[in-house]
Amino acid sequence: MRPGFYAEGPLARLSREFGLLGPLGDTMEPWMTAELDQHAAAVRDSIAADSGPITRISLSRYLDGFMDGCRERGWHSSCDGYDWETLRVLAVCRLAKEHGFVR
């Protein structure tokens, strides 16, 4: 197993669940690529401002805080389409995959 890979962590679970909602591979529609790039940049900036580099722990903490905020606002992932929250979670999942934290 690769160092830093945690098969049962929140990033892995969410990546499995949200991977069903949108493509996280190499064949994405151009609009989806642009949206996820913007969301990923915002996540990287937020983590860098709070704690420095992206690590499994810093990305997991970001995800926990983001999901807490979503729940407080009453958001749930069963809506149709790609709302702002879904795109942000997909971007977090893509970052986790790019950094080797999930498969």
Results as ranks from 00 to 15, higher is better:
residue 14 L to E: 01
residue 49 A to D: 14
residue 23 P to W: 00
residue 65 G to E: 09
residue 78 S to D: 14
residue 44 R to M: 11
residue 25 G to I: 08
residue 52 G to T: 04
residue 69 G to C: 05
residue 69 G to D: 13
residue 18 F to Q: 12
residue 13 R to V: 04
residue 69 G to A: 13
residue 14 L to S: 09
residue 76 H to V: 06
residue 30 P to M: 00
residue 52 G to Y: 04
residue 33 T to N: 11
residue 40 A to M: 12
residue 24 L to G: 08
residue 43 V to L: 09
residue 68 D to M: 11
residue 56 R to I: 01
residue 65 G to Y: 00
residue 44 R to K: 14
residue 11 L to M: 10
residue 49 A to W: 02
residue 11 L to F: 05
residue 62 Y to G: 04
residue 67 M to P: 00
residue 34 A to H: 10
residue 72 E to K: 13
residue 72 E to V: 12
residue 16 R to D: 06
residue 46 S to Q: 13
residue 80 D to Q: 08
residue 35 E to V: 07
residue 27 T to G: 01
residue 68 D to C: 06
residue 28 M to G: 02
residue 72 E to L: 12
residue 26 D to W: 05
residue 35 E to K: 05
residue 19 G to H: 04
residue 44 R to N: 03
residue 77 S to W: 08
residue 74 G to P: 12
residue 53 P to G: 06
residue 78 S to G: 13
residue 47 I to Y: 04
residue 70 C to T: 06
residue 23 P to R: 06
residue 70 C to F: 02
residue 69 G to E: 13
residue 76 H to Y: 10
residue 82 Y to N: 06
residue 82 Y to G: 00
residue 21 L to G: 02
residue 35 E to I: 03
residue 27 T to C: 02
residue 48 A to K: 15
residue 64 D to I: 13
residue 38 Q to F: 02
residue 37 D to E: 15
residue 69 G to P: 00
residue 79 C to R: 14
residue 55 T to M: 09
residue 25 G to E: 09
residue 70 C to M: 14
